[in-house]
């Protein structure tokens, strides 16, 4: 699951992530537009104090473990890569995308490529258009997408761009995103069990 946000997103994460249970069915990858690694590291530490999930700052080549949330460090793009049976996080300082690094599009496109129909993209409050193409990639890969609605978004630009691309399954108030996500995870686990 990839969740992206920018302005107003810290408050949004403090409101929804603590309610996500520590569950072996999923891992969460988090991009908040921040330019300093020190700030994103502090954010990961604060989130970890508030959450049932273990929240870590992502480091290069780190293996993605279920029941864990990873905050992508400020100043770095992150992509998920397949390494044998595992998925790992690759960090790099490539050119800014949509004026930002980390970019939500970069992360979500890689999540779509690796996890395909099992991927979930969530786009919360934020400035600019980052995240819209990433959400489209997840949708095109057969995954599921949710965007925060205008009423509960501090800044609606990012969710609006994704909605305009017609790649968002559900537009929800922040408070309903958690329940919808849990429902989606359960559905995907059951579908995968049937397929196996």
């Amino acid at each position: 699951m990839a969740i992206g946000t920018s302005s107003g997103g810290i408050k949004a994460f403090y409101e929804i992530l603590p309610d996500f249970s520590k569950n072996d069915a999923y891992a969460v990858l988090i991009v908040v537009h921040m330019n300093q690694k020190e700030v994103s590291d502090s954010f990961a530490k604060r989130l970890n104090e508030k959450c049932q999930l273990e929240v870590k700052s992502a480091t290069h080549a780190m293996t993605i473990e279920p029941g864990t949330a990873y905050v992508i460090p400020g100043g770095f793009h992150a992509e998920v890569l397949k390494k044998g049976e595992e998925a790992i996080i690759s960090l790099h300082e490539g050119p800014k995308v949509n004026f930002v690094r980390p970019s939500i599009d970069v992360l979500m496109k890689s999540v779509a490529e690796v996890f395909k129909e099992n991927s979930i993209g969530i786009l919360l409050t934020g400035m600019g258009m980052d995240g819209a193409q990433g959400m489209k990639a997840i949708k095109d890969a057969g995954g599921s997408t949710i965007a925060q609605n205008k009423t509960t978004s501090a800044v609606f630009s990012m969710p609006r761009h994704a909605i305009e691309l017609d790649c968002v399954d559900k537009v929800l108030p922040l408070q309903e995103i958690r329940d919808e996500t849990i429902k989606l995870v359960e559905e995907k686990v059951s579908q995968k069990a049937k397929a196996d």
Partner: peptide, 19 residues
């Protein structure tokens, strides 16, 4: 709720937004 797109590069600095 929607600042002009031309200011999108300021997004990593604006961590909070109060209406």
């Amino acid at each position: 709720k929607e600042p002009f797109e031309e200011y999108s590069d300021l997004s990593p600095y604006v961590l909070d937004y109060i209406t």
